[in-house]
Amino acid sequence: MEDLSLLQQNVLEKYKKLAQVLHSLDETFKKFNSSDHSDVSPESILQQIRDIEIKIAQIGTLLKGSVYSLILQRRQQIKGSSG
């Protein structure tokens, strides 16, 4: 990773976190689908759905942060090269 810029390293780190969140989300879905739900309360199912919503929000935040960082660095590069 020595050949990568700081921004590239940051973006890769954020994608690594994104992959971890997606993996966790996948595991949640697998657990949800594999268990017998005859004795599961609606409140429990709603809580699991809320947990999934939080993970999806984290994914969105990671993606937005990656794009925002890229845009900021590009602007700084443009200002630096024109000034």
Results as ranks from 00 to 15, higher is better:
L18D: 06
L18N: 07
A19N: 14
A19L: 13
A19H: 12
A19K: 08
Q20N: 12
Q20G: 11
V21T: 15
V21Y: 04
V21M: 03
V21L: 03
L22Q: 13
L22N: 11
H23D: 14
H23T: 15
L25P: 04
D26M: 09
T28F: 05
F29C: 09
F29A: 09
F29L: 14
F29G: 05
K30W: 02
K30G: 00
K30I: 08
K31S: 10
F32I: 00
N33C: 10
N33A: 12
N33D: 10
N33Q: 08
N33E: 10
S34A: 12
S34E: 11
S34T: 09
S34Y: 01
S34P: 03
S35V: 10
S35W: 05
S35Y: 04
S35C: 13
D36P: 05
D36E: 00
H37F: 09
H37M: 12
H37S: 09
H37A: 06
H37R: 14
H37V: 11
H37T: 13
S38H: 07
S38G: 00
D39K: 11
D39R: 02
V40R: 00
S41Q: 01
S41W: 02
S41A: 01
S41I: 02
P42H: 00
P42M: 03
P42S: 05
P42F: 01
L46R: 04
Q47G: 03
Q48H: 04
Q48Y: 01
Q48N: 02
Q48A: 05
I49P: 02
R50K: 10
R50S: 01
R50T: 05
D51I: 02
D51M: 00
I52K: 04
I52V: 07
E53I: 04
I54S: 08
I54Q: 10
I54M: 06
I54T: 10
K55W: 03
I56A: 03
I56Q: 09
I56R: 00
A57E: 12
A57N: 09
Q58L: 07
I59T: 13
T61R: 06
L62Y: 01
L63W: 04
L63T: 13
L63K: 13
K64Q: 13
K64N: 10
G65A: 11
S66V: 08
S66M: 10
V67R: 10
V67W: 07
V67F: 08
Y68M: 14
S69C: 14
L70E: 15
L70Q: 14
L70V: 14
I71R: 13
I71E: 13
Q73M: 14
R74Y: 15
R75S: 14
R75H: 15
